[in-house]
Design a protein around this nucleic acid. Structure first.
Lengths: 187, 187
DNA sequence: AGTAAGTTTTATCAATTGTAAAAAACATGA
DNA sequence: TCATGTTTTTTACAATTGATAAAACTTACT
C-alpha cells in the first residue's frame, strides 16, 4: 500500500493532501494463481499495483494466446485502451502466481486527477512510460531474431525466467514452444 | 495551422484563451523530400503536425533500417521518449515527400501545459493514443504472418501504398524486400 | 512408490523467410 | 532518345520457424 504511493511519488511529486486522498482511495485484492483480474469484453476499471505475485496481460484467437506483457511485484499497470476510454477490453489479465494487488478505480482516479494536478501529472507520466516501453518492444521485434529476443529477455528479466512457463514465454516472444526449446538447446 | 488547432481541440476541448496562446506558439517549416526533421542523437524539441507530405520515423543499425511509423498529412506526432524527457533520440525523422509541418516546441508546450489545463489534457490524450497504437502494432506482429500484416496494412493505409517505396514498406513490416515482393506476387 | 496432469524437449517434415545477385522496370535529366 | 541511377521483381539456395506428435521430465497428490 505504501509502495503504491512511493511509485506514484516517483512519477510526479505528490502534495501531502494528494497523497492522503490517494491513500484513502486505494483498495486491496488477492487472487489465486490462474484467476483473472480482467476478462475479455469487460471494461478495465482499475489501475493496478502488484504488491506480490505475477500477472500476464494477453489476448487470444481461436487457436493461440499472445502475451503483451508480464507484470511482477511493484509494477504499476492497467490495460491502457480499455481503462482510458472505459470501453470493453480485448485483453485479459491473469495471475500466474498467487497475487496481491493494490488498486484505484478509474472513477476515483478521475476525481483525484481533477482535484490534484500532481496526480494527473503522475498518470500522464505513466502513459508516456507505457508508450516508450511499447516502442522498445516493437524495435526489438523488428531488429532482432527470435534467438536475440530470447537472450534480450534474459538480460532484462533474468529473474522472471524461473517463474514464467516456457509456454507463456514463447507466446510473449511470438514464437512456438518448439522453437523456444530449440533456441534454449543451442547453447 | 488552423488544422493543428482543430486536431488539438478534438483531443480535449480548448478554451478560447488556450487556443489563442497555442496559435501564437505555432511555427511552420517546409522540408524537401529526403531531408531530416530529426537526426539521431539530437533531442526532439518539437511536436509536429503535418500540413502536407509524408514522413517516416525510423532507426538503423550498421546494415539495416527499421521503420516505426509513417505519418502523413494531418498527423500529430513526435518522438515520444526523446520529447517527453528531452534526451537524445535513437530515432530519426525523414521526409519522404516535400513536407510542410506546423510545430510547437517542447518549451512552449511546457509553458502552455502549466497555464492551460485543457492543453495538458490534450497532450496526455495524445500519449494514450500513442500507447494504444503501439499495442495494436505489437498485437499484429505477434498474431499475424507477414502476408497478413501486408494485407492489414493495405486495409488500413491503402492510399499510402502509392506514396511509400516498397523498400520502406518492407522495413516497416519487418521483412526483407525480397519477401515483400514474393507476398505481392502471390495473388 | 505410483498415478495422473502438466511442462518441456525432441524429432520430423513442411512452410516461410532470409541472403545475394541478376534481371527487369521505371524515372530523370542531359 | 539515350544514359544513368534507382526501385522492384525474380531466382536459387540456405536458414529459420511452424506444425504435429511422441517421448522425457516434473509436480502434486494419494
Amino acid at each position: 500500500m505504501a509502495d503504491f504511493l512511493t511509485i506514484f511519488n516517483k512519477l510526479s511529486e505528490l502534495t501531502k493532501s494528494a497523497e492522503d486522498d490517494l491513500h484513502y482511495c486505494l483498495q486491496n485484492k488477492s487472487v489465486n494463481k490462474g484467476d483473472y483480474l480482467l476478462r475479455r469484453r469487460e471494461v478495465c476499471k482499475k489501475l493496478y499495483f502488484i504488491e506480490e505475485g505475477l500477472t500476464k496481460t494477453f489476448f487470444s484467437n481461436e487457436e493461440k494466446e499472445f502475451i503483451m506483457q508480464f507484470f511482477a511485484e511493484h509494477a504499476l499497470f492497467t490495460v491502457v485502451d480499455s481503462f482510458v476510454s472505459q470501453t470493453p477490453s480485448t485483453y485479459e489479465i491473469m495471475a500466474l502466481e498467487n497475487t496481491t494487488v493494490t488498486y484505484i478505480t478509474w472513477k476515483d482516479l478521475q476525481i483525484l486527477c481533477k482535484k490534484h494536478h500532481c496526480i494527473e501529472a503522475a498518470f500522464s507520466k505513466l502513459l508516456s512510460i507505457a508508450t516508450i516501453n511499447m516502442m522498445k518492444r516493437i524495435s526489438e521485434m523488428l531488429e532482432e531474431s527470435a534467438t536475440e529476443r530470447y537472450n534480450h529477455f534474459l538480460d532484462d528479466n533474468g529473474k522472471l525466467l524461473q517463474r514464467i512457463s516456457l509456454g507463456d514465454l514463447s507466446n510473449y516472444l511470438g514464437i512456438t514452444q518448439g522453437s523456444l526449446s530449440r533456441i534454449r538447446a543451442n547453447k
